[in-house]
Amino acid sequence: MKKKRILLVEDNDDDVILTLRALEENHIGNEVDVVRNGAEALDFLFGRGKYKDRKAGSLPTIVLLDLKLPKVDGLEVLRRIRADERTKFLPVVILTSSSEENDLINGYELGANSYVCKPIEFEEFARAVKQLGLYWLLLNEPISKKVQEEI
């Protein structure tokens, strides 16, 4: 079985560390790739720029996407993921500090699979990340590549 991986798109170091720690605490910390802005995230997913040597087609199982990102913001990243044939079924969870209604609506409209507001209290945050990881990595059944191609 192919190893499942998580792509974390997050510009805040603190949040990166806290997220990774929360995942580690639940023993799913090793399978995480971290990118620091939207452009990098897109490069990573589509195998461009510094990721052009990355094996094409090896998409993550789940993308944890912050919204407020430098260069290309989270919503734009999501829009492009959904616009591309290769990534349009890729599970994307918005993981953000914003509890703004507009962000929520826009996120879902663009096809986010989940919207999770980062709790400020670490314990709660850790619990949320753990549940996310368990659900998406272990429970959720993604569309297989073969099926995707057939579609």
Binding site: D14, I17, L18, R21, S97, K118, I120, F122
Partner: peptide
């Protein structure tokens, strides 16, 4: 919120 989460975390 982010710094606060950092402080708390």
């Amino acid at each position: 919120r982010a710094p606060l989460r950092g402080m708390d975390g």
